[in-house]
Amino acid sequence: MSQFQVAVAGVGGQGALLFGRLLAEAGRSRYEHVSYFPHYATIMRGGQSECTVIISHQEISSPITFELQAVIIMHPQFVEQYQNRVQPGGRLFLDSSVVPHKITREDIEVFYIPATKSAIELGDDRVANLVLLGAYLEATKAVPLELVEKALEGRLRGGRGEALLPLNKEALRQGARLITNYGGWKDDQRRNSY
């Protein structure tokens, strides 16, 4: 495809913005045009935190748009509003570990991803955003996962976070696997039960 658009909605601290920033950084080596718009309240943790990423072979007229090809919902408070922001035929990804809703729209493809549960199993619930990013990449093929790993390396290498690199990469790959082996809503309900 010549353009990918995605909005990620979470609350401050969940890493919705990092999801977008990494995708934008990875996208720049494959696409001539990239825009990343982080939109957040002036509260560090707990406030609404949303970003929009567009990667495109054509010039991007507007970095903000209401309807998008894909939406990622990381917190239940966004379900009502953000499911309407998916274009007909588009994709919606939910962190089903924390968002209990079943989406009734039939004109979109919905992926229930147990991101937080997978992240906890990997050792840190804070990588749930990367599980979702891995799932998004596998489902859309917007950019190869390796490019996001490179972007992560660029951020973490040589810094305090370097030790976290393997965990972050594993979270991405786990997200991709959840799409490869995706079994639909019922299967996801089973996965999320403890």
């Binding site: 939109h39 406030g47 609404q48 949303e50 007229s61 903000i64 748009t65 209401f66």
Partner: peptide
């Protein structure tokens, strides 16, 4: 403005 979101925005659709 479409209000939901941190402050609402005017979108191209509007």
């Amino acid at each position: 403005r479409h209000i939901p979101g941190p402050s609402g925005l005017i979108y191209p659709e509007r």
